[in-house]
Simulated scan of single mutants.
Amino acid sequence: MEMERVKNLVSVVITNYNRADYLRECLDSILLQTYQKWELIIVDDASTDDSVLIINEWIRRHQASLAENQVIVHVLPRNVGFSGAINVGFYLARGEFIAVQDSDDYSHALRLERQIKFLQQNPDIELVGTNYYAFPSEMPTKRELSTWIKYGDEIKKVYGNGGHCVCHGTIVFRGRLFDQIGGPTRRIKGAEDYEFIAKSLNARARIENIPEALYYYRLHANQRSTKYYRRKEE
């Protein structure tokens, strides 16, 4: 039986592994969203730093602003990797819509509002990403607009040729898409984001990107996708 999803609710899924230094900025950016109907699902992949401490401290500090059960924290007992962690988050999501956010990045305050409005106005689109600014962690004001994001029919063509043109951290999709095809697998380590988009397209899901930059992508030495990011920007 298909899950009963909560209408207009956005389930924001954040997976985290040892990103203590960036978590506050990441979480604050969700709290500041102009679209108010959201729940936050944080899946910690057995971090060995102060991540869980910082998450719990952040929740306590903002308790007055948060509704009951608006934030779910699930700490995994052992490290299972990105695909395992994000699938846990997707399974816990109750929303009509599911948004992804990387724990070392942050979102523009209008991000969810713009993406939900787009999906509501385009019922034939299952998943929408946005353009974004990349910035070095040590120089947060030095932002560069991404140039590899594609739009319209180009998206399907790029993935058909083995390319990639949707930034995974920016995506919002209808919960029914996950109910239909599931999340990423462990088949392509380091490129689970590519696999999920390709799998969606193979299921005949329509995908689009919003040209406006509504996301801020942090560049740092320990980021998970450094080699993939460099390839995409070239």
Rank of each mutant, 00 (worst) to 15 (best):
N8Q: 13
S11H: 14
V12G: 08
V13C: 11
V13R: 03
N18L: 08
D21W: 00
D21C: 06
Y22E: 12
L23S: 01
R24I: 11
R24D: 01
E25G: 10
C26E: 07
L27V: 04
L27F: 15
I30H: 09
Q33G: 09
T34Q: 11
W38N: 04
E39L: 02
I41T: 01
S47Q: 05
D49G: 09
D49L: 12
S51T: 07
N56F: 00
R60D: 12
R60K: 14
R60V: 09
R61P: 03
Q63D: 14
S65A: 11
Q70A: 14
Q70T: 06
V73D: 03
V75K: 14
L76W: 10
P77T: 05
V80M: 07
V80N: 06
V80R: 13
G84V: 10
G84A: 13
N87C: 06
R94T: 06
G95S: 00
E96F: 04
F97Q: 12
I98K: 06
Q101W: 10
Q101F: 09
A109C: 14
L112A: 12
R114L: 13
I116W: 08
K117I: 06
N122I: 06
P123L: 14
L127H: 07
T130A: 06
T130H: 02
Y133C: 04
Y133K: 01
F135A: 02
M139L: 13
M139E: 06
T141K: 01
R143L: 04
E144R: 02
E144V: 00
L145M: 10
L145P: 02
S146D: 09
I149S: 00
I149N: 00
K150W: 01
Y151R: 13
E154K: 04
I155A: 14
K156R: 14
K157R: 00
K157D: 01
V158H: 03
Y159K: 08
N161F: 03
C165W: 04
C167V: 10
H168S: 15
H168A: 13
T170Y: 08
I171S: 06
V172N: 05
F173Y: 11
R174F: 11
G175Q: 06
L177R: 07
Q180N: 15
P184D: 08
P184N: 13
P184T: 12
T185V: 13
R187H: 10
R187P: 08
K189T: 10
K189F: 05
G190I: 04
A191E: 15
D193Y: 03
Y194V: 00
Y194S: 04
Y194C: 01
F196K: 03
F196W: 15
I197Q: 00
K199T: 05
L201C: 12
A205D: 14
R206E: 15
I210P: 12
P211I: 07
P211H: 12
A213W: 03
A221S: 14
N222Q: 10
S225E: 05
Y228G: 00
Y229V: 11
Y229W: 02
R231W: 01
K232D: 02
